[in-house]
Amino acid sequence: MLALRVVPCLDVRAGRVVKGVRFEGLRDMGDPVELALAYEGQGADELVVLDISASLESRGPDTETVARLRAALSIPVTVGGGVTDVDAARRLLEAGADKVAVNSAALARPQLVADLARAFGGQCTVVSIDAFRTGSGYRVAGRSATERTERSVLDWARDVEQLGAGEILATSIDRDGTRSGYDLELLRALSDTVSLPIIASGGVDGYPDLIAGARAGASAVLAASMFHEGEGTVDGAKLALAAAGIVVRSSRASGVTP
């Protein structure tokens, strides 16, 4: 049986891991490779690396950091930020990314999702959706969550599945950095709408939030601050998830038995 993935997220800017509240007020959290190796050692199932500044500054993705991570890590690495076309995605894949996440550029040109899926396969193609809640359902935000659109999250999710995407990284920008837990309603709605795996993101405070995310239908639970601040560990998260009856991958470090 497929295990729930526990996925630390590294928000990288200029080669350093940073963290801010609701995409603002960024603080330095350390060297990406050092942090990544520590998480792999704790039993992380995958890493998501987002070059969060790429899209705002309209520059290409940070292939140098990706190559450093690849040389060190033997778990899957998903990279996003600044991927505007097939060539940018190819550079990231060649640098060592296993999956590439697109966001703003796909919103501007949905055909990009189909182009990526055709060039590299759907299993490489992640669509990152920044969602915010309105009185009439969830809407999509673009440009590192600085721009709010009228597009429905569920319609967009259906579209990207049709276009050949292999996974959705669903971030609640209402919750991101607030430590109030994942937006579980968003996760439930998405997992009922598409058959793609969904990575839950935005708002984790503690292990109970990861358990709730898994129960709301997420295939992977992503967290950043909790791990970076040392308030939780990946192996601790897996023990809590396993105790709640959720299947996780055992690893030497965590001591979780399958």
Binding site: M1, L2, A3, R5, D45, E46, K99, G122, Q123, G166, E167, S195, L196, P197, S219, A220, R249, P258
Partner: peptide
Amino acid sequence: PAGVRSPQLGWNR
């Protein structure tokens, strides 16, 4: 088959 997430992404026994 229908009823499981596809593609299969992640760790399995």
